[in-house]
Design a protein around this nucleic acid. Structure first.
Lengths: 248, 248
DNA sequence: GAAAAGTATTGATCTGGATCAATTAAATGG
DNA sequence: CCATTTAATTGATCCAGATCAATACTTTTC
C-alpha cells in the first residue's frame, strides 16, 4: 500500500458510509451531511480490549461506531464492574458524559472496531444551525432513555431464561437492521459479559444456552449463534416481534 | 377569591419560580428565561392518581414539575407494571417520548402536583436560538441516561438492603437540593411502589424498613421517614463487604 | 359513617439462581 | 510450539428473597 494511502486509510466519509442511515446523518440533506462530515475525526481502528475512553476522562467527543462492537461499563467504588450496554455500528457512545463534563463510564472494544470521534462542542454548534441534526441528537438520547426503561423491566421482572431470550432477540433485531443476518451471528462478548449485563451468573448463562439448544430454540456453538425458532424465542422474551418478518 | 384571580391562579412565571435553578432555566439569562416562559403552559394542578400522560398518547409536550411528585411507569404486554422513576420539582418528564413521537410510558401524580407543559416543537425551536437552553436539554437527557446506568448497577449487583438504603439516600439528596430537609421527609409513594421500582417484593421492603429502624439507621412511621444515621445508611448504600456477618 | 378497597406488617415456607467445585476448551503470549 | 491464562461447561449445595398466609390499619366511596 502506498504511503499516501495509509494516511487516508480510515477516511470513509459520512456520505459514503454504509451505516449512515442508522447514524447521526439519518435525517440530513446531502449538504448538511458534508458539514457533519467535516467535523468528524477518524483514526486507526481500536483493537480488541482497547479502551475508547475511561471513567473520569475529560469529555470532548461522542463516538459513532462504524464497524465492530464495544461494551460500555461502570466500575463501582468496591470494584464491581457493571456492563451498561453493548454497541453496534451506527450507535452513538459517550452521551452519558454530557452532563458532568467527564466520562462516568468506560467503553472497550470487543473486537477490532472503527470509530468516528465527534467533538461535542462542534456538534452542538452544528446542531443549532441544522434542525435535523438537533432533532436526531434528541432522538438518539431519547431512545437510549427508553431502552434503559425496557432493560429495567427485564432486570426487575423477568426470569433468567426470559432475560437471555430477550437479549438474543434484541441482538438479532439490531444485526438485522444493519443488513446482517438476524438469524445467525457471532457473539462478540463473553458469557461472563452477558451474565454481567443481565444480572446473572456466568454458570446460569451457560446452562441456559445449553437448555435453549436442547429445546431447539437456538443452535449455539461457542460464540456462534443461530436462531432455530424465532417465534418461540420471542414469546419467551415476552416481546412482540415489532419488526415485520422478511429478514433472512 | 375573585374570578380574574382564578384564571391567573397557576401563573407562576419561570422568572419567579422557586425551583427554576433546578429546572430548564438554570443556564439562561433573564431575557432568555422570558422567552422560555412565553411557551410554557400551566393548568390546574393534577390531583393524586391523575395521569399526566399515558402509554401510546401522542407526544406533544415535555413536562416540568413545579410542585408535588410523580411516578412514571411502563406496563408490559402481560400487564405487569414497572415503575421507571419518581419525579420531584424541577425535573423534566416525558423525554422518553421524543424518539418515537408517542409516549412509551405513563406518568401519574403521587400527590397534588403543579406541572408546566412545554410544547416540544417550540422548545426545540427555542433551543436553536438559545445555546444555553440547548445545552441544558442535552444535559438533562444525559443525566437521565447516567442515572439509569447507576440504577442498573443497583438492580443487578446489590442486595435488597443496599437497594433500599441507596433509594432513601437518593431521595434524601434530592429533597435537600430542593431546599427541603434531607434528614426528614414524607414518602409519597407506597411500599409497593418502592418494591416495584427496586425489584423487591412489598414484604421485603416492609421488613427492611423495620430492620433499618431496629438498627437505628432511620426512624420510620408509615410514610414519614427521618434519617438517624446518614453515615451508616450511605455506607450500606455504597460499599458493603459481603464476608462480614453479624446481622441477625 | 359503614362497607369496600387498598396498604402495611409479620410469620412460615419454598425456590430460582447464586455460589462452590471440578473439568475441559480456547485464547494469548513468550 | 508449548505454557499460562482466560472462558465455558456441568454438577452439587445453599440461601436471599419470593411467595403464601393471616391480620391490622388506612383511605376511599357511596
Amino acid at each position: 500500500m502506498l504511503k499516501q494511502d495509509l494516511s487516508k486509510k480510515y477516511e470513509v466519509k459520512c456520505q459514503s458510509c454504509s451505516i449512515s442511515r442508522l447514524c447521526l446523518p439519518v435525517m440530513l440533506a446531502e449538504t448538511d451531511i458534508e458539514h457533519l462530515d467535516a467535523i468528524v475525526q477518524r483514526s486507526r481502528p481500536l483493537r480488541k480490549s482497547e479502551l475508547l475512553f475511561s471513567d473520569g476522562e475529560k469529555f470532548e467527543n461522542v463516538y459513532a461506531i462504524r464497524s465492530g462492537s464495544l461494551k460500555s461499563y461502570t466500575i463501582s467504588e468496591d470494584g464491581i464492574e457493571q456492563i451498561t450496554g453493548f454497541h453496534l455500528p451506527g450507535e452513538i457512545v459517550g452521551l452519558d458524559a454530557i452532563n458532568s463534563g467527564s466520562h462516568p463510564s468506560f467503553a472497550k472494544a470487543l473486537e477490532t472496531s472503527a470509530i468516528c470521534a465527534i467533538p461535542f462542542d462542534k456538534l452542538e454548534e452544528l446542531a443549532r444551525s441544522m434542525p435535523g441534526l438537533q432533532q436526531q441528537l434528541f432522538k438518539v438520547m431519547s431512545q437510549e432513555i427508553r431502552e434503559d426503561q425496557e432493560l429495567m423491566m427485564l432486570l426487575n421482572k423477568k426470569a433468567a431464561d426470559e432475560r437471555l431470550a430477550a437479549f438474543i432477540i434484541n441482538l438479532s433485531q439490531r444485526f438485522g437492521r444493519r443488513g446482517l443476518s438476524s438469524s445467525q451471528f457471532r457473539l462478540t462478548m463473553t458469557r461472563s459479559d452477558i451474565g454481567n449485563y443481565l444480572g446473572l451468573a456466568v454458570e446460569t448463562v451457560s446452562r441456559l444456552f445449553t437448555k435453549f439448544q436442547q429445546n431447539e430454540l437456538i443452535d449455539v456453538n461457542d460464540k456462534e449463534v443461530s436462531i432455530s425458532d424465532a417465534e418461540a424465542l420471542s414469546s419467551l422474551a415476552g416481546t412482540r416481534c415489532h419488526f415485520v418478518q422478511g429478514e433472512k
